[in-house]
C-alpha cells in the first residue's frame, strides 16, 4: 500500500471526502480506539488530567480521553487537540467533541506555556512531520521544533506517547533521536513486531517526576514486553572516544590498519608510542 505521506501534505491529503472516509470507516475507528487505549495504558495517569492530542484529526482519540467510561483510566480527562487539516477539524466540530481544537502545524512548535500538560498523545501523526513541503524547512528541523515545544509544554514528570508509522528503520531513528535531543527519555515500544499490523509507540518521559526514568520504568510490570536496550552501543562508543589521538592505543590501531592495507610498518616494541626524553 502506498503511504499517504508520500503523496500529498497532510492539510491537502485530508480534504473533506478523505476526512469523512477516515472518520466513518469502522476499521480505522477500531484500530484508532485500540491504539488510544494502549497509549493511555502507557501513560498510566492517576488523576483527571490535561492532555495534549497532537494530530487529533476528527477527535477519534479525544472521544476516548473525555469519556467517563471505566475503560478510560482515571478519566474523564480534558484535552486540547492540534491538527493541520481544516476538514478533519470540521468533522470534529460536527461531532461536538469536548476538547478544544486548534488549527496548527506541530512542525512549527507547540504554542503553550511551559509546564502546561500532564501528558500528551499522538496517534498516527508524527510520520507526517518527516516530510518537508518547502525548501525552507527540513524534516529534522520540523521534528526538532515539535519535540522541543512538546518537551517545554509538558509538566515535570509528564509523559508523552506517540504512535506512528515509520517508513523504515532510518525514519524510526530520526524520530527518536529528535526526541532525545529535545531532552526526553525516549524509547520505542513495538506491538506485533514484524507483522503487517505492527504498531510503533514512541514513549517519552520528562524527568523530575515520581516515575523511574525512561521507558523501562514505564513498561515495568507489563506482561509480554521484551526490553532491548539500544543504549549499550552508545556506551561502547564512549569507550572508544577515550582512545585519544596520539595515545599508544591509537598508534597501535593505526599501525594495524596500515599493515592490513599492505603498507610496510615498523615492528612494535615496548618503546612504541612512548615520549622521547627532552634532550636539553
Amino acid at each position: 500500500m502506498s503511504r499517504p505521506e508520500d503523496t500529498l501534505p497532510p492539510d491537502l491529503f485530508y480534504n473533506d471526502s478523505e476526512s469523512r472516509k477516515y472518520t466513518t470507516s469502522s476499521r480505522i475507528q477500531h484500530i484508532q480506539t485500540q491504539m488510544t487505549h494502549r497509549a493511555l495504558e502507557l501513560l498510566s495517569l492517576r488523576h483527571p488530567s490535561l492532555i495534549l492530542d497532537v494530530g487529533c484529526g476528527s477527535g477519534l482519540s479525544g472521544e476516548i480521553l473525555s469519556s467517563s467510561a471505566p475503560t478510560t483510566p482515571s478519566g474523564p480527562h480534558t484535552w486540547v487537540g492540534l491538527d493541520i487539516s481544516a476538514s478533519m477539524l470540521a468533522v470534529a466540530l460536527e461531532k461536538e467533541v469536548e476538547g478544544d481544537l486548534f488549527l496548527a502545524d506541530a512542525g512549527q512548535g507547540v504554542p503553550f506555556r511551559p509546564g502546561t500538560f500532564d501528558a500528551a498523545i499522538s496517534i498516527s501523526a508524527v510520520q507526517w512531520l518527516c516530510n518537508a513541503e518547502s525548501s525552507e524547512e527540513s524534516p529534522a528541523g520540523r521534528l526538532g521544533r515539535f519535540f522541543n515545544g512538546l518537551y517545554a509544554s509538558l509538566r515535570r514528570g509528564g509523559r508523552a506517547v506517540c504512535q506512528f508509522y515509520p517508513k523504515n528503520e532510518e525514519q524510526k531513528r530520526m524520530v527518536s533521536n529528535a526526541a532525545v535531543r529535545a531532552g526526553f527519555g525516549a524509547g520505542l515500544l513495538e506491538d506485533d513486531p514484524g507483522t503487517k499490523s505492527a504498531k510503533t509507540y514512541l514513549v517519552l518521559t520528562v524527568g523530575g517526576g515520581e516515575l523511574d526514568g525512561d521507558i523501562t520504568g514505564v513498561v515495568k510490570g507489563m506482561e509480554g514486553v521484551d526490553v532491548v536496550d539500544g543504549r549499550r552501543r552508545a556506551k561502547d562508543k564512549a569507550k572508544r572516544g577515550e582512545e585519544r589521538k596520539g595515545s599508544k592505543a591509537w598508534i597501535m590501531r593505526k599501525k594495524e590498519q596500515m599493515e592490513k592495507k599492505g603498507k610496510v610498518v615498523k615492528a612494535s616494541s615496548k618503546y612504541t608510542g612512548r615520549r622521547r626524553k627532552i634532550a636539553f
Binding site: 492540534l82 493541520i84 477539524l89 486548534f102 488549527l103 496548527a104 512549527q108 525552507e136
Partner: peptide
C-alpha cells in the same frame, strides 16, 4: 467556531 488558527506563514 471555537477553533483558533495557529498556522503561521513561513
Amino acid at each position: 467556531e471555537g477553533i483558533a488558527n495557529f498556522l503561521l506563514p513561513s
